[in-house]
Structure formats: C-alpha cells, structure tokens
Design a binder for these strands. Structure first.
Lengths: 337, 337
DNA sequence: TTGAAAGCGCTAACAT
DNA sequence: ATGTTAGCGCTTTCAA
C-alpha cells in the first residue's frame, strides 16, 4: 500500500495525498476528508524510509547507552523515550558493551539512520576535541559531563548532577551524624568517571571536617554492578570492623552492599550507616529503606531531550545544565553518640 | 557523503561500489581494496533509508513493550537487543502505555519502518483472529501466550513459561513446608493475563492438597507495580494475622510486599514465608534473599529472536516454546512445624 | 569485470 | 486548489 494507491482510490494526485498527510494548507476540505477516510480504511501508514530519504532530515534521534544493567538508567531511558515521542520524534535505541566506544557507535548510527541528534548515557567523561569530531550532529551527555577532557563548553551539551558536590553532601551528612570512620565503595578511584568524581567529593568532605583519609576504608569493586559491590563490601567487612558508616556511589550497589553487611552479621544502621546517590525505585523497598540523594531521573531525561531538540531545531546552541539531588531519608543512617 | 562520492573518489561507478559494499562477487580484488580503503578513510556508512527503500525488505525487527517499569522485562529486553544485533538485524524499540493496544502500535511500526517481524513483550493473552490480522508480519509473544483467546496454534508464535504450572509449583513448595494459610498477592484475579493464570495455579495447588480456598487471603493490587504491591500487602497484614506464607506473582512485587510486612512488624520468614516467580537480579540482594522460581530471562529473549528470525528468513513457521523455571532457594521460606 | 539506468515511496518546487 | 515531475541514495537488472 503506497501513497499512489491512496491517490488512485481517491481519484486525486499523489501530491494532494501528501499534502493531506503532512497537514499542508491548500487542500479543500472535501478532498482532505476523502483522503483521510481512505487512509483510515486501509490502515495506510507512510513508508518512513522513503520519507527520510527525500527529507533532508529524518525525525529520529538516537540514544546510545553503556550499562543498561544499571537500574537508574532504566528510569532515565523511560523518560527519554517518552519525551522524544511526545515531541513527535522517533527514538533509536542502541546499547553498547562496556568495552565499546560510544562515539563511533553513535557516529555509525547517525549516518546509517540519518539521525538528527544523539543522547549519550553512561559515556566517558574525557572526550577530546578530535574524538567528538566524528559526531556530525548535536549531542548531549546525559548524567555526565566532560570533567576530565579538554572540551570547550560550547562544543557539547550536558545534563547532570554535580557528582563531586553531591558526594560531598552525602559524606557530610554522615559526618554530621557523628561518623568519622566512613567507608567508601566505588568502582575505581581513577576511572576518569563518576567514581573518581565521587571519590574526590568524599576526600574533600573528610578533609574539610578534619578527618584523615584512611585509604584502607576505600574499596574498589572494579565493575559497576551489584555482584561486585557485594563482593567489595564483603571483603571490607571482613578486613575491618571499625567503620561505622559507608558511602556507596550508587543505589544499586548500596543495596548489594547492605546485603553483604547483613550476611556478615552487621546490622544497618545499628552497626553501619549507609548512604548512596541515585534514588532508584527499588531502594525504597529495602529493609531499612536506603537513605540516598535522589537524582531527578525524569527531569534528567526530559532536559536532555529538550536541549537536544532545541539544537536540532536550531532554537538554541549547546547548553549545560546542572541538576540538584534531593535527600530521601530512609532508615539506613543512625546518629552516632 | 553518499555512494556517489565514494564512486567518484575511486574512479568507478556507483554500482561497483554497491557491489563491494554488499559483498557481491564479480569485483576485481584491486577495485574492492581501493573502495574499501576509501570507505574506511571517510568513515562512509550507507544510508539505511535508501537501502530499505530499494530493498523489498528491511533488516529491522520491532520490539513492542508494555510495562518497561517491570525489572524482569529489563533483563529480557537486553537479551533480545543482543540477539537481534548478533544476527545482523536492527531492533526498533517501542514502549506503550498500559492502556494502548500493542497490536495497532505494532502494525503502525511495521508499516512505517518496514519491519520484518515483531516481538511483543507484556501483551494481552486473548487475541482474536481478527485482531492479529492487522499484523502483516511474523510475530512472537514473548513471556506470554494466547491462553484466553481462540487463536490456532499455527497463527502465532510464543515463548513463555507455563504460568499456571509454575504458580502451582510455587504454592506447592509452600505447602510442602507445612503452610496451609497461604496468602496471594496479584494484580487482578480476572485480568485474562498472567495474574489470572497464576491465580489458577494457586487455586489448583490448594485444591490438590486439600486446603480450602480462602478468598480473603487473596489481595489484588490493581496495578502491576511495587507501590501497589506494597499497599496490598499492607492492607492484608492489617486485616489478617493468621497467614504464615504468601505467594506473590512477581519478584518486584514480592520485594515490595516483604517491605510492607517488615513495616508492619512481621519478620520474613519467621512470621511469614514468601515465594515469587521471576528471578530478577535485585531480589538476590534482599534480606532475606527472596526464594523464587527463576524464569530464564536470557533464554526467553534468545528463543524469541531465533523463532522470529527463522520465520522471517522462511526457515520455519510458527512455533511455541515452553520454558521451565528453576528454583532459586533464598531465605524467605521457613519450614512450619 | 564494469557501467548505465530504472525505480523503490515520498516530498516539494513548479506549473496549471 | 490540484497535478506533474524531479530527485533523495541505494540496489539491481541489463548491456557492454
């Protein structure tokens, strides 16, 4: 079923049908109705490929994700898909393995699907000018920014929380409750990524409050998943008995860490307080409820889409947006006396 | 950058470039190398739309999902995306709201993107012949089947567990541990969907073991999410104090239900044993670990893709596959003495 | 082994 | 207000 068939059935030309389909003016009401009726009748849907081909621009934007396993991302992805759909665009979803390069993956996707723009989720924090040059369309880094690269502000867009600052807040919260021996569970100290930033926030908070950094209380998981986080906390709890609190860099990892503590016979928060950053649905239902700094997942997605589409539609240039977390008080922190 | 540009740079015709790009024989080694070299050099990627347009068939398959919020689906989706990519196809992902009709959504997607086939996740269990007629391509129902419709076996494909049987197994497991007062948390008794099937399994298991069905122990959530499950268990635990076990129809809901029990001062499994079906990653990390019948999420996805592609490539017709769960023994069940 | 050219379904400029 | 027609980038006959 093509536009030609519709035209024939209506006794009009293809261009008239095309006009109706694209809401152009200059079509008589009679003809418009007739066409719409036939279109409904035969369930005609235009061929997107043909459309994309003739239009200088498609109406698709791409989402490249590294780490779909991360429950926090799931919530952001949902919000992005939603916002993209609302705006009348189609989202092309592509997940990549941890070793893959999101920029080349994105570049291929852009070319083969003629994408108007790209949203990157879970990408690297250290792009260089040369690296992003392969991307010929606007893009926005969602939930991260170019903290370790030399990119100019106007060379890319980003929507993210301030990882270092929020980590600082989390640790400070523990300190305010009287904790001094505060463990840290992170992926890697020097990953040039979220771990490193939150590590810095952790160190800074300790420093500012006159607590000496004890590197032995910092445990690296080596991977950003629950299993590794469980293992890390397990090792730590066996090695050290003297910490009274732990900051885990992500909710999902914190859930696993609490389980590890429990399996080692520790009680949360009596023996060890726990705080994290993210605010996934699941961590509302742990026992105790995880106290965490909630990232505005929905807003993160919506803002990213808005910024991208503004660029795609030439309404604005590259922008950066820093969102704030909000404290969700659970029951995983106790005041030390 | 088009195929024409490549042709010019190589001093050959577009058809020759096309041949190289599509691995056709009848191209001299010299020319092939030259073309490939230029292609690499300029990072040329063919325009998928143009390709799809001229080819009678695209290489895309669609995935229509209702209920992306369900963590179990997340794992299945990942596996599907993976398998589709492995096979050299592209996956077009589309999520729909709970009220939307997956068949019309799928039909539109098929036509506009010229999809070769469709995988439906979280769809209805009661399609009629007329309803599926709108789909002009092969499709497979992933994680459900036509339990409440009048479809002929060869009219559609499915990959799923036997919901009723597995629910039966779950409840039987509780009975074998001495439980007689067994609560049930489900979405709705008569939703013509997974809840209804698992409800049947629950009833049958009670019946077969001479336990009278107590409808007051069956609590409907009305929605398939954690919040509703929490509310349902909360209500139940306030109303009745005499049940010693609960079967919750999904892992995610079970996690929320355990939290509700805990908030009501109940201990799992001392005061109430809990079992569920699904086996999401998260429920390994609850305290206690949830005992559950694990659906083979990865296999569910892989099989669905395999069956679909076999049909798309005309290697086989419609097929149905029933997968088995495996028991993951957590700590949420205690033996009643 | 290569090239020329038709045509996939659609939109938009141009003509009427 | 409507029709005619030239491409968009690609694959695939058909000819050479």
């Amino acid at each position: 079923m093509t536009i030609k068939d519709i035209a024939e059935r209506c006794g009009v030309s293809v261009s008239t049908v095309s006009r109706v389909l694209n809401d152009h003016p200059d079509v008589s009401e009679k003809v418009r109705e007739k066409v719409m009726q036939v279109v409904e009748e035969v369930h005609y849907v235009p061929n997107g490929s043909a459309r994309d081909l003739v239009k200088p621009k498609s109406n698709s934007i791409g989402l490249v994700v590294r780490g779909v396993g991360n429950p926090f991302f799931t919530e952001v992805i949902r919000s992005i898909e939603n916002a993209v759909g609302q705006a009348g665009y189609t989202m092309i979803f592509h997940q990549i393995a941890s070793g893959e390069d999101e920029l080349s993956a994105g570049a291929s996707l852009v070319q083969s699907k003629r994408l108007r723009g790209l949203i990157l989720l879970g990408g690297c924090f250290d792009y260089s000018k040369e690296q992003i040059a392969v991307l010929k369309v606007p893009f926005v880094c969602c939930s991260y920014t170019n903290s370790f690269g030399g990119l100019k502000e106007d060379a890319y867009s980003s929507v993210t929380i301030n990882d270092q600052k929020e980590a600082y807040k989390a640790v400070e919260l523990l300190i305010e409750q009287g904790h001094k021996k505060i463990a840290l569970i992170l992926d890697s100290r020097h990953d040039h990524s979220v771990s490193e930033l939150r590590y810095k926030g952790y160190c800074q908070a300790l420093l500012d409050h006159g607590i000496e950094l004890d590197e032995e209380l910092v445990e690296e998981t080596g991977k950003f998943d629950m299993e590794s986080a469980y293992g890390a906390m397990h090792r730590l709890a066996r090695r050290r008995k003297d910490f009274t609190a732990a900051f885990v860099i992500a909710d999902s990892m914190a859930v696993a860490a609490m389980k590890a503590l429990s399996d080692e016979g520790w009680n949360v928060p009596e023996d060890c307080s726990v705080i994290a950053i993210d605010g996934i649905t699941m961590s509302t239902y742990t026992v105790p409820t995880l106290t965490t700094l909630v990232q505005p997942a929905e807003e993160l997605g919506e803002r990213s889409v808005r910024i991208l589409l503004d660029m795609v539609e030439k309404k604005a240039g590259n922008r950066h947006m820093e969102l704030e977390t909000s404290l969700r008080e659970g029951g995983s922190i106790r005041k030390l006396d």
